[in-house]
Structure formats: structure tokens, C-alpha cells
């Protein structure tokens, strides 16, 4: 009796594991109550693994580098390649970015499980929107959508611990934009931005050298100045940067020299 029962529940669990909850078509039930109109039909949020509660970002999370720079017709988004857990680097080729649609890109840092889970949840919903409406969401719309989701999560039992940079080009006006979001769901549109300790090193450099009319080449030069400073001053090796840019041709990969040796100060 016991084995039989145990076996059944095991199979049940296995099914649930490889079939995420939001993939199951249990939304088919119609809602017809007029006084309570149906919610925006989003994909259901996946139930994620229970982590130990960690309300504030740990030091190793702040060591992750996220950088964003806008210019006259592009937005650069860059993220460090090191995947860290405590003092250990687990992976040196990590890509902490997801492309959401043709003209927007999300970079993330924060708690290991939450980051990818949340980014892919946003990615799935953005793509769902594109499919349903035959039009892409603008970066501004995505940013506010993300903020809403993060703000809801913040007041839940287990909030996502994710910091984000969202870069993109408006599909209609082609204006570049960059949005800074932290795990508290604060949202700010900014010309250039960083997350973690990198903020302290990079923002002042960009304050001095950035202006809104720069071209892509200058943007990458500025990025180099920032990463050089990080290599020079930050006490850990972040294993180089994944650099992408959103331009009118979509998201492009940018070759970036990670092996450049920077003389220490």
C-alpha cells in the first residue's frame, strides 16, 4: 500500500519538475464574473525552489559587474562573466543577459537562483506579448512591467533578489534608453548605469566623460575605461565582460578584449 502510494506521488513530482507550472494549460477555465474582470493573462509565475531567506544582497553579489551606456543611436549593456558563490568562482563564461525581444536586452545580477528564473520569466512574458499582439513592447513598457512584477514580489513571502539593467531602442521612435532597477523595484531611466560595487568606480568616470551624443565606438571606449578602472581597483577578478549593444539592427554582440592587462595603480 505504502509503496504504491509513494510511487504515485514520485511520478507526480517528476512530472511537475520537467513540466513547469506555467506550461500547463490550466488557464482554460473561462471567467465570466462581470464585477471581477479577468486579470491580465500573464503566464503564471513558476514556483521556484525555496532558498534560505536572504533579504539583502551578499558581498559576492555586489561584486558582479553590470554596466550600461546609452549614446545617440545605441545602448550598450555589459555584464561580468564570473559566476560566484561566496569567495569561489564557479564559472568564468557566464552570460548574465537575456534578449527580450528584437530591441531590448536585460542584464541581471543577484541571488543565484532568482536571477535566471526571473529574467526568463520576463523574457517569456515579453515574447508572449509579441506573439499575441504582433508588436513588440517598448523598452519603457517592459521596464514598467518588470518593476511591477518586482514590486509585487517584494511584498511577497519570498521576494526575488535581483538587480537589473534594461537597455533598448524604442521600436517606433528608435530612441535609445536604459533603465536601472534594483531588487527593491526602484526604477530610474538613466543615460548610463551600473550595479554593485562597480557603481562606485564607474559612475564617476561616466559622469566626467559621457554625453548623450556619443557614437558606438566612443561608447565602447568609455566601457573600456570603466573596465580598466575595475581591473585596477576591484579586489577580485570578474573574468571579463560579455558586451552587447542594441542598435537599429537589433541586438549585436561586441568583441571585447578581456585579456587586456591593466597596470595597477
Amino acid at each position: 500500500m505504502c509503496t504504491d502510494h509513494g510511487c504515485a506521488s514520485f511520478i507526480d513530482k517528476a512530472y511537475r519538475c520537467d513540466q513547469p507550472e506555467w506550461a500547463m494549460p490550466h488557464q482554460a477555465e473561462a471567467r465570466l464574473r462581470v464585477d471581477e474582470p479577468h486579470e491580465d493573462q500573464l503566464l503564471e509565475r513558476p514556483t521556484h525552489l525555496q532558498h534560505t531567506k536572504q533579504p539583502f544582497p551578499g558581498y559576492h553579489q555586489k561584486m558582479e559587474v553590470l554596466l550600461g551606456i546609452t549614446g545617440k543611436d545605441f545602448t550598450i549593456v555589459a555584464s561580468s562573466k564570473a559566476a560566484m558563490r561566496g569567495a569561489t568562482i564557479l564559472k568564468a563564461q557566464d552570460v548574465k543577459q537575456r534578449q527580450l525581444n528584437k530591441s531590448s536586452l536585460l542584464a541581471y545580477s543577484g541571488e543565484a537562483g532568482d536571477t535566471v528564473q526571473f529574467a526568463e520569466y520576463i523574457q517569456a512574458n515579453t515574447q508572449l506579448y509579441s506573439m499575441r499582439n504582433e508588436a513588440d513592447l517598448s523598452p519603457s513598457a517592459i521596464a514598467h512591467f518588470v518593476r511591477g512584477e518586482l514590486a509585487t514580489s517584494l511584498r511577497s513571502r519570498k521576494p526575488y533578489n535581483v538587480n537589473l539593467l534594461l537597455g533598448g531602442l524604442d521600436p517606433i521612435t528608435l530612441k535609445p534608453s536604459l533603465y536601472w532597477l534594483d531588487y527593491l523595484a526602484s526604477l530610474a531611466p538613466v543615460p548610463y548605469a551600473a550595479h554593485g560595487y562597480a557603481q562606485y568606480y564607474c559612475l564617476s568616470i561616466l559622469d566626467k566623460h559621457h554625453n548623450p551624443d556619443i557614437d558606438l565606438e566612443t561608447g565602447i571606449k568609455l566601457l573600456n575605461m570603466c573596465t580598466d578602472e575595475l581591473k585596477r581597483r576591484m579586489p577580485i577578478d570578474f573574468k571579463g565582460m560579455t558586451v552587447k549593444a542594441v542598435t537599429k539592427d537589433g541586438v549585436i554582440d561586441i568583441d571585447f578584449d578581456d585579456d587586456k592587462v591593466v597596470k595597477s595603480a
Binding site: R147, G148, L150, A151, L154, L184, A185, S186, L187, A188
Partner: peptide, 11 residues
């Protein structure tokens, strides 16, 4: 106050 709540409340 808290920036996130400023945005939430204003919306």
C-alpha cells in the same frame, strides 16, 4: 520615501 513605493503609490 522608498523609491519603489513612490512609483507604486503614484501609479
Amino acid at each position: 520615501g522608498l523609491a519603489t513605493d513612490v512609483a507604486t503609490v503614484s501609479d
